[in-house]
Design a binder for these strands. Sequence first.
DNA 1: TACATATTCCACCCTGAGGTAGGAATTATG
DNA 2: CATAATTCCTACCTCAGGGTGGAATATGTA
Lengths: 137, 137
Amino acid sequence: MRLSTTSEYAIRSLVYMASCGPELCSVKHLSEKLDIPYKYLGRLMATLGNAGLISSTRGKNGGYTIDKPLSTIRLLDIVQIVDGLDNFDRCLLGFPECNDDDPCPMHDFWKEHNEGITEMITNVSLAEILASKSKKF
Amino acid sequence: MRLSTTSEYAIRSLVYMASCGPELCSVKHLSEKLDIPYKYLGRLMATLGNAGLISSTRGKNGGYTIDKPLSTIRLLDIVQIVDGLDNFDRCLLGFPECNDDDPCPMHDFWKEHNEGITEMITNVSLAEILASKSKKF
DNA sequence: TACATATTCCACCCTGAGGTAGGAATTATG
DNA sequence: CATAATTCCTACCTCAGGGTGGAATATGTA
Ligand code: SF4
Ligand code: SF4
């Protein structure tokens, strides 16, 4: 019951960048600040860049900056780019086709949590996260 | 946001066995009925046997049967045997040490779901699942 | 030019999922 | 009893994918 390491990295990086405002964040800076392997984060940022979430500037004092309004970047979008959505809205026991009328024995115990998480991932954007004013970073 | 394939297999098999009562279930039968790779399930059942959840009978008409009272086999126990518990009660962003007083920016959005799932896994046993009277199997 | 940064390519290790090949125990049956 | 059939069990092997690092390249600034 966790996101992939890569999704964790992506969300942490984007939340941090969002909290920095419009300034450029270099991969080196992010890597040290967030304790994420430099090389791996470099590729991850390139992926996010290709997906259009962030844009890059090369050369000295270069780095990445967030391209789109924070409210338009949902957690779902980030996870989708990085990992795909196969692991969301999934039956807990892996049954292929089922619904409320023909439930598996776990349905009553799993449905509410599954729907809650899916809704959270779908509705929460970087804007909401930033508004929570955590002291972390 | 899913269990591992192996945990899914284990839970499906145990729920099915529980629904069969005290009869012996062979790996071959379980494999065909639940559409789980035969050899893989064989090893998985042996693991569950070594952990004391089920006991085996070899030879013709042999198979496995559940050893303990259904109410003492919680989902948590099954997952623990198969996968360990590293992925439960985990910070969504993978921060190492944090609490309600020094939360990460995701805390307000993640905490309730995490606690809900952890509580469900901890409290629901095979007895409760069987009582739900699903028509599946 | 010298340096900093993104970007790309490749090789590696680990783990989860699954397969192959047998061996050991028990029972059905001639 | 003897043999075959069935079943659990164990030890290896394969394969794909996630995560990681090294090295080289492209692109910009001072
Ligand atoms: S019946 Fe419900 S809980 Fe069970 S596999 Fe289907 S959607 Fe998931
Ligand atoms: S602050 Fe809360 S949500 Fe964030 S990493 Fe810690 S426990 Fe998880």
